Amino acid sequence: MTTATAPAPRPNRPLTVPDRAALDGWTRHLDALGVSRSPVRDTGYAEFVSVPDPDGIAWELWAAKPEH
């Protein structure tokens, strides 16, 4: 008997950018190229966007907030 198993979770690949202005620049660049991305998300200490690649890995661009 064969049992179904869930696929292994794909890793996230976080990359940092210097600040929110740089994050906004990247979102504009991705949008101009037609790349699918998440909206900018706010964690309280940083803001980030996720960009999935064809293999299902979520690349993340993070900008720390100045007060953190």
Rank of each mutant, 00 (worst) to 15 (best):
L23E: 08
D24S: 02
D19S: 15
R41Q: 11
V35W: 00
L30H: 10
D19G: 11
W26T: 02
A32G: 10
D53C: 07
L61A: 05
I57H: 08
R41K: 09
P9E: 11
R20V: 10
G34R: 06
P18I: 10
S50W: 00
W59D: 06
H68L: 08
W59H: 15
P39A: 13
D42C: 10
V40L: 06
Y45I: 11
F48W: 08
S50A: 10
F48M: 06
E60A: 00
T16R: 03
A58D: 12
L30R: 03
E60S: 01
R41Y: 01
T16Q: 05
T43L: 13
D53A: 03
A58W: 04
G56S: 05
D24K: 06
Y45M: 13
A4Q: 13
H29I: 08
G34A: 07
L30W: 11
E47V: 15
P11G: 07
P11I: 10
A46P: 05
P66R: 14
P14W: 04
A21C: 03
D55Q: 05
S38C: 02
T43G: 11
R37S: 12
T2I: 04
V51T: 08
R13D: 03
T3E: 14
E67F: 11
A8L: 12
E60G: 00
D19I: 10
T16L: 07
N12G: 02
A58Y: 04
T3Y: 14
G56M: 08
P18E: 09
T2S: 07
G44S: 07
P52L: 01
Y45V: 15
A63K: 06
A32W: 06
S50M: 09
A4T: 13
Y45E: 09
A46N: 10
T16E: 09
H68K: 11
I57N: 12
P39M: 02
T43F: 13
P54C: 06
V17E: 00
R10W: 08
W26S: 04
L23P: 00
D55E: 13
P14R: 00
S50Q: 09
A4D: 14
D55A: 13
V40F: 04
A32V: 04
G44K: 08
V40Q: 05
T5M: 07
A58R: 08
